[in-house]
Design a protein around this nucleic acid. Structure first.
Lengths: 247, 247
DNA sequence: GACATTCAAATGTCTGACAATTAAGATACT
DNA sequence: AGTATCTTAATTGTCAGACATTTGAATGTC
């Protein structure tokens, strides 16, 4: 950081360039976790810009979870250790908006979602803990309760699948796949689940849980595949009903 | 936006609360794509804060790709359509930092990476285009060239696998899996590839490409699995060498 | 109709000030 | 000596006002 040379050009916004320079230093390891950046006034002198501009740059970095700021003496901006927990909300925001703003069809989103889940099954079949199995069973049970709203059913469905993914014991895979599933929540919420639909889904969930518990990855994948197909037919039904209502 | 009520509390930073309020409005659809936010001065009045504070909030949103700003008359802040291209760099930054800052082992990262790729294979075997097949073949060829640096070999390796993933024709899956693979680049770069190692990898790449072309998903998955195992043994070798050098 | 000029609105940057926060050091008390 | 409290300096957060820059629209000119 100290030795870097900063020559800001005129063709882009100054604050953007400063943020970029600091971001690069973080990415390539020049700045380590918990290291303190120079104070805002020092950065002003170093980049030869005003404090507003420096602050805009720091704000951008804070929004990307790259730094945290602390007021008071011995405070300042510190390189933040990006944790899975911190990164998750941003990830979710982006994923959800990508789906809703890019006219991604339900089929396409669904395909990606079940592909991600399928990737987890072999590992989950090997490593799933008793705790995670218990969560899956509990959610299956909840899904069979009378008077459960569609939205609650959907939430439970997602909890079930997230527990399955967590069963891999792999934080990276968990992070990626979990967001793939959860970002579909708004799309899934459009589906209406009749009692018959729920029965079918519960049966498939049970089959998947049984297979995972038995360590039978192949069976679990097969059942998951059926669930994927069934989910798409449900979505098709909703679409048809809406089309019929329109006419 | 107009009808929302904003009561800012004192316990958090004002700019953060404003950014949060606008972000919520975008997420729940109150603000549509390309819609223009009120001007900074109008936002000042509405939230009863100074322009600096409003600007800090807008900057945060811009850093998250949620809005874009445009200078000049009829300019302002507009809700941005989050495209896969725009979101990718942020995604990559986050993913890379998650790996490097959380002491994620090579095995763990590798496991997640190959799981994601495996999820793509059935779809790719069904839909991979001639163009994508050509890219895969070209990269395999490049990997066999004399005098190729380890880094270039690694880059080509990643290009190969990204083409495979693109073969799914699913933009969502492509986005997710692609970043899973690419974020491992820095870890992969630590490996040294002997001529013998490269030969093994090229053979596996060829087998995968052949299977994809033949539409044989099962075969492709089996070969990919071998590649995953082999990659981990290579990483183990590097670790052993380093340990030996230390002693 | 085509082109140049002017204008107004908006963001980007600068300056200077004050408020709020916080850890370290100084001080007073026991 | 130890502890509680006060002071202080450093730092970020917010405010206010100004000017610079950009840019589309309106206007004027040929």
């Amino acid at each position: 950081m100290m030795t870097m040379k900063y020559t800001l050009t005129q063709d882009r916004e100054l604050s953007t360039q400063i943020a970029e320079a600091i971001r690069e230093a973080i990415m390539d390891g020049t700045l380590m976790v918990n290291e303190r950046l120079p104070s805002e006034n020092e950065l002003c002198e170093r980049f030869e810009v005003s404090r507003s501009t420096v602050r805009e740059a720091l704000n951008r970095l804070a929004a990307q979870n790259l730094i945290r700021t602390q007021r008071g003496a011995y405070g300042g901006a510190f390189i933040k250790k990006v944790s899975f927990e911190d990164a998750y909300p941003n990830q979710m925001t982006t994923s959800s908006l990508l789906l809703s703003m890019n006219e991604v069809s339900f089929e396409t989103a669904c395909e990606a979602r079940f592909a991600a889940e399928r990737a987890c099954i072999p590992l989950s079949a090997k490593r799933c803990s008793a705790d995670q199995m218990a969560t899956m069973r509990a959610e299956i049970h909840r899904q069979g309760q009378e008077g459960l709203s569609d939205e609650s059913f959907c939430t439970s469905d997602i909890t079930f699948h997230k527990a399955l993914i967590e069963g891999t014991g792999n934080p990276v895979l968990n992070f990626q796949s979990s967001s793939a599933i959860e970002s579909m929540q708004s799309l899934m919420n459009m589906i209406t689940y009749s009692a018959r639909d729920r029965a079918v889904i519960i049966k498939l969930h049970t089959a998947i849980a049984d297979a995972i518990e038995a360590g039978d990855a192949q069976k679990a994948e097969a059942e998951l595949s059926k669930l994927a197909d069934y989910t798409i037919t449900l979505a098709d039904q909703v679409r048809e009903q809406r089309a019929a209502k329109k006419a």
